[in-house]
Amino acid sequence: MSRGSPTCCDRTAAALRAGRAPAPSGCATCQALIAAARLAPVGEPEAFDAGAAFAELEGALAAEAGWRGRLRAWPTWARVLAVVLAALAIGALNAGFAPRPDLAHYPWPRLVLVLGLCFAGVWAAGAGALWPLSRPELKPATAGVLALLGLAIPLALALAPEAAATLPACAPPAGMFRQKAIGCLVFGCLCAVPALLAAATFTRGALSITDGLLVASAGALCGQVALQLHCPIVGAEHQLAGHVPVALALNAAVCLALLLKNRGAR
């Protein structure tokens, strides 16, 4: 049986809906359908004033003519690409204007792998955040995994074997552990803003908490791109204290913003 050809159950349902007797069938699903259909007739839809509803809708459609309406009407692949490009722009700015001092000595294969992982994470979390309503809803487990990427990738990078510390800048100066960690946390959060803004701009409806966590995940990984290109400190303690909490801070901020927004909407 091909995926597109009607099954015996489809033919039975069509006959019942048209008020015809269905063809005899030995199919157990058809038998169950025939029995259930007698008890649950389809009936005519209730009256609906489509004219009045469409008149109201036209007002909302007129508002879609603005720049934001045009941006969120982009195809989904282009909207997700815009989020990835925001992260790419942040990475390019850091590499160009504020690169880590050990960039020339840092093992390139590792940097490529780390950045590749971060960009893949931005893409995956961005795709989850901008998942279109015209596709079957993301399974909760999938959405959960994507929302955790913003935390899991920096955590994995922090716990991975340290890259070679070739310059004095690769270790935090004595007594400045906390300042450096807070500095990276703030810097990572600020560098997440373009991805957060892009995701918020391109979303097509009100964000749920799950959507918000996905947006925060994409933002956290954008911040991570910046940190990997900017911060030379390779120690796990610094990364656990300064890089990993970017995701936690963004999750908390996004959830708080959504809760306040929802409360204000009531």
Partner: peptide, 13 residues
């Protein structure tokens, strides 16, 4: 109405 607003927004999908 929301459904059709979403149809409008997703028309290029």
């Amino acid at each position: 109405q929301q459904t059709f607003l979403q149809v409008h927004r997703a028309r290029h999908d």
